[in-house]
Computed example of a mutant assay.
Amino acid sequence: MSIEKVLDVLREGFMTILIVAGPTLAIALVVGLIISIIQAATQLQEQTLSFVPKILAVIGALVVFGNFMLNALIAYTEKIFELIAGL
């Protein structure tokens, strides 16, 4: 296996990680930012207040984007197995 092929597999692996983790992390970031703004505006500094909405948002994101994420992982895994079989 050439260096170029290994780098291509690594690049595709990193892109798959970004595609799979991106939507969930972005939603958690947005919800956390909104909760932080609300906490700053109301001067409520309760540490646990931000966890419940973030958890619910992440669960909702997994429900909505779960099929897309799973399909991306399956496609990458199939490509890796085909590459291994071709060696």
Rank of each mutant, 00 (worst) to 15 (best):
A61R: 01
M15H: 04
L7W: 11
E82C: 06
N67V: 09
F14R: 10
V58H: 01
T42Y: 01
V31K: 07
I38M: 12
I27P: 03
L44V: 14
A21E: 06
I38N: 10
L44F: 08
I38E: 09
L18A: 10
V9L: 01
A21Q: 00
L87R: 04
T16G: 10
L7T: 11
F65Q: 05
A72T: 10
A21Y: 07
K54D: 08
I84G: 13
I35C: 05
I35K: 03
L87P: 07
E46K: 04
K5S: 14
A85R: 14
S2W: 04
T24Y: 01
V63M: 12
A61E: 04
L73D: 03
L10K: 04
G60K: 01
S50R: 00
T48W: 12
L83H: 09
V52L: 06
V31E: 07
V64R: 07
L83A: 14
Q39E: 12
V20T: 12
K5W: 11
K5A: 15
Q47T: 12
Q45R: 10
A28H: 05
L25W: 09
I3E: 10
M69R: 06
I84H: 14
V30I: 14
G32T: 07
L44I: 14
I34S: 04
R11W: 13
A21T: 13
A72M: 00
T16Y: 01
L7E: 09
S2Y: 05
I19G: 01
E12Q: 15
L7P: 02
A40M: 08
S50N: 05
V30G: 02
T77N: 13
K79I: 10
I59A: 08
G86A: 14
T48K: 15
A57P: 01
K5E: 15
A57Y: 00
G22F: 04
F65C: 11
Q45Y: 06
A85Q: 15
G32H: 06
Q47F: 04
G22V: 03
